[in-house]
């Protein structure tokens, strides 16, 4: 089971895994529906946890609206029904604290090039709860070996007694090396402080939008409630694609997401409140002068 708002790549992966088992994804992958196309209700997810579900993969934070799912509650409900739970933490690692062990999450995975600043294509993260260390990796490779056995070169795989067992091939050293310096900063600054500032930044951004940009057809598509709000804000507008182009022309780098979303992420470690202020000021200028009309309302290859 997954949800209908999640990042497409997760769905492609799950569909292909089902096909490898000879199962038809259209019948065997349940995607929980969103009531409004923006958010998910935990109650709706739990309602779908029936005896036919074997495994659930959900995002920690939705990549568009930025909604945080109640991971603890969902994990508890799934386990009560004998279902495995894993989370895609791409949009939450490095911006909100997690308690995977306390919540007894079974597994998780995430990328390190977003809030963790590991660089383009940086290697990703993988978490496996200790209680699953004895499980055989579905996809085994020599770097999953016990360190002292790896170079014995035996044809019998002796897996590491750690999450390391789930490694496959030789690690991409130069694509992970930047992480070392970056993670040091996170350890030093402390994730609780980072979260606190992130919430202040997103609250300030929403306050400014509310105060300066109403009457231009914008709608805030992210949770107002702090416990539900991740590290970015979605601003919806029918002209979103070309408003983003106008912002870029003004040296402000936003992100555009189909079909009509401007995604703004003020980042705790490097975005200032004055930059948030400038961003909203420029947005107002773009709307007042209808500067977006100089562009086509269509995204480029990426954004």
């Amino acid at each position: 089971m997954a949800d209908e708002l999640t990042f497409p790549s997760d769905i492609y992966a799950l569909q292909s895994q089902l096909r490898l088992h000879g199962l038809d994804p259209s019948a065997h992958l349940v995607q929980v529906k969103s009531r409004d196309g923006k958010f998910l209700e935990e109650d709706d997810i739990i309602a779908e946890m029936n005896e036919d579900i074997a495994m659930i993969v959900l995002p920690t934070v939705l990549y568009r609206s930025g909604q945080i799912l109640d991971m603890e509650r969902l994990t508890k409900e799934a386990h009560a029904r004998g279902i495995m739970v894993g989370f895609d933490a791409c949009h939450s690692v490095g911006v909100i604290p997690h308690l995977f062990d306390n919540w007894e999450v079974d597994f998780a995975f995430w990328c390190n090039y977003k809030h963790l600043n590991g660089g383009p294509g940086c290697v990703a993260g993988l978490y496996v709860n200790r209680k699953h260390f004895a499980r055989k990796p579905g996809l085994a490779g020599w770097f999953g070996s016990r360190k002292d056995k790896q170079f014995d070169m035996e044809h019998t795989f002796t897996q590491a007694n750690s999450a390391g067992a789930f490694q496959i091939g030789t690690p991409h050293i130069l694509s992970m090396a930047p992480l070392l310096g970056s993670l040091e900063m996170f350890a030093e600054a402390g994730i609780e402080h980072i979260r606190k500032k992130s919430l202040r930044l997103t609250q300030y951004l929403m306050d400014l939008i509310q105060s300066e940009l109403m009457g231009y057809g914008f709608e805030i598509g992210s949770p107002r409630h702090e416990a539900k709000r991740g590290g970015h804000i979605i601003l919806e507008h029918p002209e979103a694609a070309r408003i983003c182009k106008a912002l870029k022309q003004e040296a402000i780098i936003p992100d555009y997401r189909e079909p009509d979303m401007i995604r703004l992420a003020p980042v705790a470690l490097y975005t200032s409140f004055q930059e948030v202020y400038e961003t909203v000021k420029v947005l107002k200028k773009i709307m007042d002068g209808r500067l977006y009309e100089n562009y086509e309302n269509k995204r480029g290859i990426i954004a």
């Binding site: 895994q17 895609d88 990328c111 290697v123 990703a124 993260g125 993988l126 579905g138 490694q167």
Partner: peptide, 15 residues
């Protein structure tokens, strides 16, 4: 553990 990519890791975990 660090390694692979987000999607490759999901493949590993699902497998």
């Amino acid at each position: 553990i660090m390694g692979g990519s987000t999607t490759a890791n999901l493949h590993q975990l699902a497998a």
